[in-house]
Design a protein around this nucleic acid. Structure first.
Lengths: 162, 162
DNA sequence: CTATATTTTTGGTATAATACCAAATTTTGA
DNA sequence: TCAAAATTTGGTATTATACCAAAAATATAG
């Protein structure tokens, strides 16, 4: 619990693997403790797979995990997850500016997001004027429409200030 | 040699792994047959690692490989490599539009490029008006400055029509 | 033209990320 | 309190990538 700890120095945005980022973004949409099964159903994977990844996220300080009970974001984990969400939204918006549909933008963003640095996201976000629309809806506000912790709408939807 | 063959149907842009894309882009900068050692030195990896990846690229039809002699892009491989280069350049240009330096743009592009679809690149490229500048110089025209088959210049440089 | 040096390949092993399965453990609910 | 459900453990698999050592092929120096 030192290597990847979200409180160790500056975050680059590149500390977590794709699946871990997906888990954090999903957890952001849930207020209370989340059970292993909820996550495994969300991502359609075996519960044992979830147990292993959350153990790593907990070890690195992103989650509090009470065995057999569930997980919850730590403060640092929540902050990191919020960055991940914003990054997803900024990238989705970027693609939509080039003419991709919201769903396409969201898909492209999902594939690349874990490899885009915090610095790049910061510049994109300022350059866009800290936009308030996104390819996805505000987390926790609407039901999921399946694109990997990404919530599609037929039209872009208002989200909080990025 | 069916699964990933560049001639099988439409290319999505997502068929190759990051390292393989890097190899193809590098090969694009070389006209004649390239030795295993040249590639292994370029990427600072063991020659045996190169042998294995080029075997897979050859099996999938991107390269012609004469054992103990070297590799050369097939026509399909060259076409694919050209797409990869263009994608890199389009993405690099996108980042530079948001205020990242050429080197930063190139780095970010290198990390994400293999996960960006051909469709997205197409839309970005048209939307940008098929630009002729890039974060990188024209392949084969100047010596490499090390960013993973990406050639930096202090200033953006003219490249062929994207 | 041969002995040695160099390059390349083979075969084995390693790691990270991700996944499944079966068995063991814990919790829940009747 | 006991069976059902959820969770975890332990083992194995895959893909991408890498290293090493040994074998094979090629090149080169005399």
């Amino acid at each position: 619990m030192t290597e990847n700890n979200p409180e160790n120095g500056e975050i680059t945005g590149l500390e977590l693997s794709p699946r871990k980022v997906s888990y954090l973004k999903f957890l952001l949409t849930k207020d209370d403790t989340v059970r292993t099964t909820e996550i495994s159903e969300e991502f359609d994977v075996d519960p044992s797979t979830v147990t292993k990844l959350i153990a790593e996220l907990a070890e690195d300080g992103y989650l509090d995990h009470v065995p057999y009970r569930g997980v919850k974001l730590t403060d640092a984990g929540r902050e990191y997850a919020e960055f991940c969400l914003k990054r997803h939204q900024v990238l989705g918006l970027m693609f939509s500016h080039y003419g991709l549909s919201p769903a396409e933008s969201c898909d492209e963003a999902s594939r690349i997001e874990t490899f885009v640095s915090k610095k790049a996201v910061g510049k994109m976000c300022s350059s866009m004027g800290h936009p308030t629309i996104s390819c996805c809806v505000k987390p926790g506000e609407t039901r999921q429409i399946n694109h990997d912790s990404c919530f599609h709408e037929s039209r872009p939807n208002i989200i909080r200030k990025l």
